[in-house]
Write a protein that binds this DNA or RNA. Sequence first.
DNA 1: ATGAAAGCGCTAACAC
DNA 2: GTGTTAGCGCTTTCAT
Lengths: 375, 375
Amino acid sequence: MPLATARIAPPRGRAATIDSVTITIHDVARRARVSLTTVSRAFTQPALLRTETRERVLAAARALDYQPNRAARSLITGKTGNFGLIVPDLGNPFYPGVLRGVQARAHEAGYAVLLADSDEDPVAEVTLVQLMAKQVDGIIVCAPFSGDRELRRLAAATSLVLVNRRCTPIPAVLMDIARGMRQAIAHLHGLGHRRCAYLGGPAAAWSNRERLRGLHAAAQSTGLDLVELGPFEPKFEGGIEGADRAVEAGVTALVAYNDLMALGALRRLAERGVRVPDAMSVVGFDDLLFASMCAPPLTTVTMPMEAAGRAAVDLLLARIAAAPPAGATPTTELTTQLIVRGTTAPPTLAAVAGAAAQPRVAKGSAAVVGVRARR
Amino acid sequence: MPLATARIAPPRGRAATIDSVTITIHDVARRARVSLTTVSRAFTQPALLRTETRERVLAAARALDYQPNRAARSLITGKTGNFGLIVPDLGNPFYPGVLRGVQARAHEAGYAVLLADSDEDPVAEVTLVQLMAKQVDGIIVCAPFSGDRELRRLAAATSLVLVNRRCTPIPAVLMDIARGMRQAIAHLHGLGHRRCAYLGGPAAAWSNRERLRGLHAAAQSTGLDLVELGPFEPKFEGGIEGADRAVEAGVTALVAYNDLMALGALRRLAERGVRVPDAMSVVGFDDLLFASMCAPPLTTVTMPMEAAGRAAVDLLLARIAAAPPAGATPTTELTTQLIVRGTTAPPTLAAVAGAAAQPRVAKGSAAVVGVRARR
DNA sequence: ATGAAAGCGCTAACAC
DNA sequence: GTGTTAGCGCTTTCAT
């Protein structure tokens, strides 16, 4: 057996250890009767080899079950074959969606994905980027919590791509959130709603500001009366609180920062005996898996999470292939779209009247105080 | 500046490229006026150095913003500082839960996490393990689709840990699913149910078999009449189909393989006008985030997903620290627990009578055929 | 307690 | 087209 020349890896434990044999490029070279270089080229620049030689080398490699050592290769090329992905909160189903797209596209392109969760901590975020920087060829940061200056500094030392955050000149995948929001407002207005609340998410977040942008544009053009509430925690609990505020505000419809909040609102409204969609229409954002599964199914704005993940990888691949023209900010804009389901309907006459005049008392709820829009 | 001796990385593009300077162990050694060896030891075996020397080296490293090159280190030690995680489907919210635990624990232990999605394809699963094997120190495979033989073969070449799959002697994190199931059945029986359907998941899956184990044990000891249905696709759609079968079977309660199916069943039951929990009690499995958010909130069995992820990493760490005693199968068993919420209640008398005698016709549904339990 | 030297497995100039 | 040679940055015997 030609394997006789292969080195035996030093035993790691006492007994029952994994007896692994390390096959190197040397072994393949010897078996194929060529030099190290030729073996190397068979894998990295096959075109340079004569067909026959290449075949012989590859056959030998296959017979020996040889796989190039990535660490060694990486040491010399400076490339790792890995991408990093940093998300603020794996507990939010939005991010696994992006992750899925990133993973799939990266795999297609021959890259592996390193994942980290910043737990919505800006400091951790920066640390994670720095930690990852050395072992990846590029990093995707989702909805970063760090400031622009910090991001630019990181981008100077690593190939960075942002998702849902604009920070020139860092390449980014953006969603046309304002469009979805305009659709949502147009939809509500078309149904007859004239007074609507927005349950805000993190005040500083790009995605919250974009929603507001669409919101104001649409409200202005339709003449819809807008009540901005929040900010609330962008989770179920935030929606619970937000629903109370919305009821107090005497609106007939509410748009939540995301589906999680919308779901929370739905729950609270049900508890208070406010019927959805008759007494209150509810619109979410994200179109999580569960938006279509709950009862009534949630009217929401669908966000192309998986596509965003894929697009982010594409941006990274482009960045690696060639430095972008100076001054440019490679950007992929994805579109969002309202999905009308079961939580929106024309307002009942009573509700409309109530909203126009006085804050109404929801059936089964305590008396309600006046309109309290913040800001 | 001592930086003058550092090499400048070759430019990658034309203009506006990242001008990164590579700081190596040499630079640190020179600045601290020690040898390479000493610098290396300052990071890997600090105890061997005199306190003063160590301080000096670390100070120099800090001043230069030096970080050891992992590829170089890995090339010589054979360790990578990475763990791999393979899940069957990132689209199923169960797995992000595990992922979260894995990520958190790995990070604590100084490891990074490589993620891959097998898309429920056994072949892809094997390929992914092999692909990852070279660049990680251990791999966690969640609810593997591969056969025992295949898994054992993989385990012979890599440090493997399984989650929700028993395959001696591969270390595994298991959940006491049967316990949760027994609780669920006891709960239903206690409410007065006497005939209950189980909407089965993948017939071959360990977790499905475990559920069945608990199911049969509990049914036998309580005298509950059990109708096994399925297998169904373990998703929303599967639950829709399952609900129809359950109604046909004339049961007053159903237990679904997982929450996704339970949610599907809820939807279908609502469509058919079968009121939950009055006309039909529903129990899920997993306790996904949304189980508590939907209306009515789902009675389900909570699975310690995050804890499982952490436990899996612990098993890997133990495996790395020392080979396990021959013949042993390191196993962590986590417990599951029924959470009673809004989808279970005593059966209505009419329903009970119907179940005992003839299949009933659900309000608003087409006529129903006879009982059709598979298997 | 510290240093010198020998590679880990591979790629990339540079010859031929 | 293929081979020779010189490292990539680091750890690790083996000396001292």
